[in-house]
């Protein structure tokens, strides 16, 4: 066996030391710069309101998917092209679905109910808790959404969401709306049409579509304003949260389910 390394190689040690130092500086410096650049961000929305929804499942009609189509159109989801050669099953499993229709039967009584499922805009959202970068966040007005500038696509929020409300963008995006930007490799979900609310409007696309069909199953509004239609409706009738056992205090409530 050769013994050609009997003496400690000082040059090598020196080199390793300097490399570690340089790598450390390269890791830390951009972070410092970013933090400095981010200081003094502008004002956000007000916490005096909390946006929420009340869904009357009795009014939600079997076979109607007006809310889903309206959401797809409003948020440019219908612009996403199906990759060539992808099976129906994979397409359904991989394409984004911000809102979906679910049909249920009570295993005891056989009662049938229909309802739309989407992000429930929890007061204590598990997706926000688990997000490593803080990309998943809750606005002061209660809307839970994803900052797609800092989403790294780790998908931990999708693991944590009890409602399967989140979608990952699995392919390149050719066309998109300015009001609903998206990119491959990030996670997204229903944000209660935040673009509309921020522009001063007070209805969501799904609600408009449902009203247009004459069903009026979706009621959107400010939960904190006691005079709002939704607050009065919630006070007058019994409603429930999906998976109330988790005590997430959802912003979306259901009646007759």
């Amino acid at each position: 066996m050769s013994i050609n390394n009997d003496q400690p190689d000082l040059q090598r040690r020196d080199f390793i030391g300097k490399t570690v130092l340089a790598a450390g500086a390269a890791t830390v410096a951009p972070g410092v710069l970013l933090t400095v650049a981010n200081a003094g961000s502008d004002e956000g929305v007000s916490s005096a309101v909390r946006w929420g929804m009340l869904i009357d499942t009795n009014k939600c009609v079997d076979g109607c998917s007006a809310c889903v189509e309206a959401c797809d159109k409003e948020n440019g989801i219908d612009l996403i092209e199906r990759p060539q050669g992808q099976s129906d099953e994979m397409w359904n499993a991989q394409r984004p679905q911000w809102i979906r229709k679910v049909k249920l039967r009570d295993t005891q009584t056989g009662e049938i109910s229909n309802l739309p499922m989407m992000c429930q805009h929890c007061e204590h959202p598990p997706c926000v808790d688990v997000c490593p970068t803080g990309a998943s966040f809750k606005r002061a007005d209660g809307i839970v959404m994803v900052d797609r500038h800092i989403c790294i696509g780790c998908r931990y929020c999708m693991m944590a969401c009890p409602y399967k409300a989140r979608s990952f963008i699995h392919q390149d995006i050719a066309e998109q709306l300015t009001s609903a930007p998206r990119g491959k490799g990030c996670v997204e979900s229903c944000h209660l049409c935040a673009n509309r609310i921020d522009a001063g409007r007070e209805t969501t696309a799904c609600q408009d579509a449902c009203n247009q069909e004459g069903h009026k199953a979706i009621l959107f509004g400010d939960l904190k304003n006691p005079d709002s239609e939704i607050a009065r409706a919630l006070k007058a009738q019994h409603s429930r949260q999906i998976r109330a056992d988790l005590e997430l205090n959802t912003g979306v409530r259901y009646t007759n389910v």
Binding site: G31, L34, C131, P132, C151, I152, Y156, K184, G185, V187
Partner: peptide
């Protein structure tokens, strides 16, 4: 396997300390 591996620097510099993932980093 991240959706955006190019954002490694974001993961290393932007932390949400309630996230067990952030602690793991």
């Amino acid at each position: 396997d991240l959706g955006r591996p190019d954002r490694l620097i974001v993961a290393m510099t932007t932390y949400n300390f309630k996230s067990i993932f952030a602690w793991n980093i």
